[in-house]
Amino acid sequence: MRKEFSSIISRKIKANEKLVFMTGDLGYNALEPVIEAAGERFINAGVAEQNMVGVAAGMAYKGFNVFTYSIAPFAVYRCFEQIKIDVCIHNLPVYIVGNGGGYGYGIMGATHHAIEDIACLSSLPNMTCWIPAFVEDVDYCLNKIVDEKKPAYLRLGLGKPYPNPVAISTINQVISSESPEITIIAMGPIVHNALEAIAGKQTIDLFTILAVPFLKFSDALKTSIERTRKVIVIEEHVGRGGMAEQVLSRLANESLFPDAFVSMHAKGYPSKLYGNQSFHQTESGLDVASIQNEISKLS
């Protein structure tokens, strides 16, 4: 999604002189078009994420809308207090962009993974986390972020295009079944594993939710849950504070109590062994076979 992101930002920043793009010294082979498009509004802040976010807050106070970019763990954790105080408490339009959310940086190791980012950031006031699942979602999320002019986080991963055309919204029905038995909700590009797992099955409704927190279920998602009464949430993020807990809380708020609820989530480093993103997904039971297994158990 990084290339798509770079291309959309380049277009937006050319058209909107209030946009500023800061990077924590990352973006090689992706952000070059942004440098070209943004001119003096492209700022390499160096490997100093806390200062970058503080500077962004100062610029936002003066009327700019500022992106701060790094890989997800550096964009979020190092500068968490700056995001909380300087940005969120003042409800300033600073947009944190984390590339490679989840296990996206695979073999780079634990320092480069971000599997608690949504839990951390979604607890902050005024903050909305945006998690595109398909490449086309990046444009939708960026439009929302720039339009809303408030603190936001964009978690980028390795996305592919939608399998079928969808009028993109914050909650999307990706696969719809005539007589659904299970409702699956995926957060982010892990949806591709879900798609592969349900290929050929006629009994699954598959949804993505692109925002945390989200205000309410779409009518289609609510109807699906009411029909199937079985929900699986899949996310490349720890269970605590992630999408599953968001969905559970929403279910309770809407007095929807399904018969079965399964949270499939990142489990850290259970074997203390390291590998690529797919390896870590398998370790956490987020791979295609594990998803198929959960579906079988509920069928």
Binding site: M52, G54, G58, K62, E81, D86
Partner: peptide, 29 residues
Amino acid sequence: NSFLNIPFALGSLGHGFPIACGIAQANQL
């Protein structure tokens, strides 16, 4: 968010200087 001349909540040390850099940079832009 209460007074014009208290533009930021401050008190955790090390926050004011980066914010001021941002304001200076914005003023230049």
